[in-house]
Design a protein around this nucleic acid. Structure first.
Lengths: 160, 160
DNA sequence: TATTGTTATACTCTATAACTATA
DNA sequence: TATAGTTATAGAGTATAACAATA
């Protein structure tokens, strides 16, 4: 490592390492997101669920007979993206696509017993994961963080 | 819209819309990140800089003669990823790759005048962008948010 | 006409592994 | 041996645009 702190040797303050960039909400959001994403993958291992599949499974377990379109709306992604996710969950035998009487376009996503237990196990893992990674945050700070993130979501998720 | 709130009609509380998922830090982090990312793109337009190119430009302007490897370390991505970013900034005439006397492996990234003014303009745009999107957050809340995000980063960015 | 599930396709961002030229 | 820049390649994750079946 030739130089850990490039340029600008004669600065007086030590707080803002990189003037503008490090103070942006967006930049810090991205970096923190990358950290949590990488940690999630590490915990789950190469055979485990990805974050998006875990999220989908969570909603399927909570709302049995939910529809792919509803799921897409709740997750904030396009319908077309749900197909691969649903395929994976079906391949793992965590849910089944069940025809809905009265509307033959729709398929209800019904969690299997295996899906429900897999979700519970995964949930415990993820909670321990967040507890471990967010160990520097108090319960109140964590709550504050979620509140602030939800405010950002509320600002932007209206324009669909 | 057939059903805005699927399943589980008889719940007593109204706070946690989706029990587990909506309360996870990771999930809210991802959703908020997607909001800010999408907004950034919308503001910049199809010809504008992406977030990662803007971040790189920011560091190049702040640390003239920074190296690609140093840049990669500061941005938390691999060296190989910097090539395309540097190519784009060079193609836009925002920086030049300058040989460094004493070590012929290295190329210093030197911002051009166009790069510096483009950065300043872009910076103003991005700041207005964050101001607009984070309008629901007070200055103090924004500061708190950045602090909390940095704590998460500190927890995870050690393992390189 | 509108909606559901689906396919095809492309784009962005990132990582890994290798190469070359230098050190 | 190690490092800087580079290339090739692959893998997530997302979006758009279309289509068939159904409403």
């Amino acid at each position: 490592m030739a130089q850990t702190r490039p340029g600008r040797i004669g600065e007086m303050e030590e707080e803002p390492l990189n003037g503008a960039l490090e103070n942006f909400v967006g930049y810090n959001l991205k970096r923190a997101y990358m950290v949590i994403q990488a940690d999630f993958r590490k915990i789950q291992g190469s055979e485990g669920l990805s974050t998006r599949v875990f999220s989908a499974l969570s909603l399927v377990v909570e709302y049995p007979q939910i529809t792919q379109s509803e799921l897409a709306r709740m997750l904030g992604i396009e319908r077309s993206g749900l197909v691969a996710i649903t395929d994976e969950l079906e391949r793992r035998n965590y849910l089944t696509r069940v025809p809905v009487p009265g509307d033959r376009r729709v398929q209800a996503l019904v969690p299997t017993q295996a899906g429900q237990t897999a979700y519970k196990d995964c949930l415990a893992l993820v909670q321990a994961h967040e507890d471990g990674l967010l160990t520097g945050l108090s319960d109140k700070e964590r709550e504050t963080l979620v509140d602030l993130l939800r405010k950002i979501r509320a600002s932007g998720e209206g324009d669909d």
